[in-house]
Design a protein around this nucleic acid. Structure first.
Length: 587
DNA sequence: GCCGTTTTCGGCCCGACTGTTTTCAGTCG
């Protein structure tokens, strides 16, 4: 994918800021650009492709005017309107609006009165005492500005879901010990299981009289750095761990569902619901759904009753992104999303046969002790991955023998034989067919050549009769490495046609496929496998992260191979081999 | 600027907290 999506998203984000700066009469225009920016940022298809097919108008949030600007950019490399705005607005200071506590009004005043254009100039002005005393800039506001400026770089970073979950679990545990807490739940993007997290949101219900006690306890929990805001029902703190903001909201039991819905978001999901409510003659807020005519409370205690009142099926948090969940729930029953209890085995793990920390026996013992799986597949690296101590054909044969011995001793067939074989630069595999043929399961992955387009490479691997799955298909590492360039539409077609599964790799830094590609793959009819890629016993718990992705992509058990019995997986493997045999015989 | 099972015009979610100001604007989620 070209970087055009990101560039345009950036331009529209800037234009939105510029319109916000220009004044309240432009706020809806600003909203429109803001939405267009978000949409482009989340788009999984190259905008150049959509432009070629003349389908820009079909993208939700992109209308005639913005489509025209995208056209203009693609043709000329510039957007006239943007250039005009840049002359009108001191755009160097737009970044100031990203600082917590700074809105368009404050930034405008700072620019007009003190000619401030950059963060550094702002810092200087604050230190020289020129800001304080300006109308609207009291002592405390200036102090907050100083603090925000210091925090900006750290605060911008989002953290991995798994880290956010460990923080929220700890806080939830502490708060649930308070006997006045009736209900408690983590909300926001953690509840929606987004792959990265900004702030942590926690909702509590209690009697109104107990709120102050709960707030006091919350502020006193371990690791609090500072209190950012504190009211009777809402508190924000900063904690040392990852320098995160944690928001606590306390409501009555009757408001629980409405508040949970509101606080879970996403923003877009909420806006849709509230707009729909309004059309139906209701008003919806975090306290419930009310009839506008007489203000009567119609729903609020549970999320389920609110969705019901709105004439909608219950939408699980993972799907609430304000995209197509409303349309899709209308079209069909929301089928039951896959859960962690559906998983029957882990199909990608490493032992000390390559770069794992434990022996295959220890790994197997651990899984059987703590998980209810029916099978695991040993998939150590192959020889090309030297740094991981990958196996050659001889070593792999030895491992196969070893697994057979272990299984025989245990009197079962729990450990399946497999490999994570390397896909070489030309798309061939780095182990010969003779050894691959003997394995129960072959996962093929790319571990080199990340900068090239890897479409053909992956397609060739899919065509191989013994390859059953493509491991971590995009190769991305969240926050560290972009995925390599791949034409996913083509890959999904080939994967489906050849009977090759794609992996949802549940390593926290990988989460690969991600939710969006996973959804596209599922729509294309591709089978998926959720794997932990465990390199130690502890990592088997990553399975739940993989489930999060699958759920966000609307997957049910029928989409996920390792929710099926081993017999079904065997059929999946054999049918691909058989097809190739037939094709070979026909030649 | 976008959008439409009331609409191609006229809407566009709604409330908490802060700080500064004495009744509310600004900002955030």
């Amino acid at each position: 994918m070209s970087g055009t999506n990101q560039i345009l998203s950036g331009i529209f984000r800037n234009m939105a800021s510029m319109y916000r700066y220009l004044g309240d009469d432009q706020r809806f225009r600003a909203l429109a650009y803001s939405k267009a920016s978000r949409v482009l940022n989340g788009l999984n298809v190259d905008i150049l492709e959509i432009h070629k097919k003349n389908l820009l108008d079909d993208i939700p949030g992109i209308g005639k005017s913005i489509a025209q600007k995208i056209n203009e950019y693609i043709k000329t490399g510039k957007i006239k309107k943007y250039e005009v705005l840049k002359r009108k607005v001191p755009h160097e200071i737009l970044e100031l609006m990203d600082i917590s506590g700074f809105g368009p009004k404050s930034v405008k005043r700072l620019h007009e009165k003190l000619h401030i254009n950059t963060k550094q100039q702002l810092l200087n002005a604050i230190n020289e005492g020129r800001v304080q005393g300006l109308v609207g800039f009291g002592e405390r506001k200036v102090e907050n500005m100083r603090r925000s400026l210091k925090l900006i770089n750290q605060a911008e970073k989002r953290i991995l879901l798994t880290h956010a979950l460990s923080i929220s679990d700890r806080i939830l545990q502490q708060l649930s010990k308070i006997k006045e807490v009736h209900q408690i739940e983590v909300a926001g993007s953690i509840r929606r299981k987004k792959e990265t997290i900004g702030d942590i949101d926690i909702l509590v219900s209690s009697s109104p009289k107990d709120r102050s006690k709960i707030i006091k306890e919350f502020i006193g929990i371990q690791g609090v750095k500072s209190v950012l805001a504190k009211g009777p029902t809402k508190v924000s703190i900063l904690i040392h761990e990852f320098n995160r903001q944690v928001d606590l909201r306390i409501v009555d039991d009757e408001q629980w569902g409405a508040s949970l819905l509101y606080l879970t978001g996403s923003k877009e999901h909420n806006v849709f619901l509230r707009t729909k409510a309004k059309k139906n003659g209701y008003k919806m807020n975090e306290y419930g759904v009310f009839r506008i005519r007489d203000g009567r409370l119609l729903a609020g205690k549970t999320e389920e009753e609110i969705y019901r009142l709105m004439g909608l099926k219950y939408i699980p948090p993972e799907l609430r992104e304000g995209k197509d969940e409303f349309e899709l729930t209308k079209q069909k029953m929301i089928s039951k999303l896959v859960t962690i209890d559906d998983v029957k085995g882990d199909m990608h793990l490493h032992s000390d046969g390559s770069d794992g920390l434990s022996s295959l026996e220890k790994m197997a013992d651990y899984v059987q002790k703590y998980y209810t799986y029916d099978y695991i597949v040993m998939t150590d690296h192959s020889k090309s991955v030297r740094i991981a101590g990958g196996m050659n054909e001889r070593e792999l044969q030895q491992q196969i023998n070893r697994i057979k011995r272990v299984n025989k001793k245990a009197g079962n067939d729990y450990i399946k034989t497999g490999v994570e074989v390397d896909i070489l630069e030309d798309g061939s595999l780095d182990l010969n067919d003779h050894i691959l043929e003997k394995l129960d399961w072959v996962c093929a992955s790319i571990h080199s050549g990340f900068r090239k387009d890897n479409t053909e490479r992956i397609i060739k691997a899919c065509m191989h009769p013994y390859v059953n799955c493509i491991g971590h298909p995009t190769g991305r590492l969240i926050g560290k490495r972009e995925g390599y360039s791949v034409d996913w539409v083509r890959v999904f077609k080939v994967a489906k046609a050849t009977g090759t599964a794609l992996e949802i790799n549940a390593q926290p830094e990988r989460m690969d496929l991600n939710d969006e590609l996973c959804s596209l793959a599922r729509n294309a009819g591709v089978k998926l496998v959720i794997s932990t890629d465990s390199h130690s016993e502890k990592q088997f718990e990553f399975m739940k992260s993989g489930i999060f992705i699958a759920r966000r992509a609307w997957c049910t058990v029928k989409d996920i191979l390792n929710t099926q019995s081993w017999k079904t997986i065997e059929q999946f493997v054999q049918s691909k081999r058989k097809r190739h045999q037939i094709a070979g015989n026909l030649k």
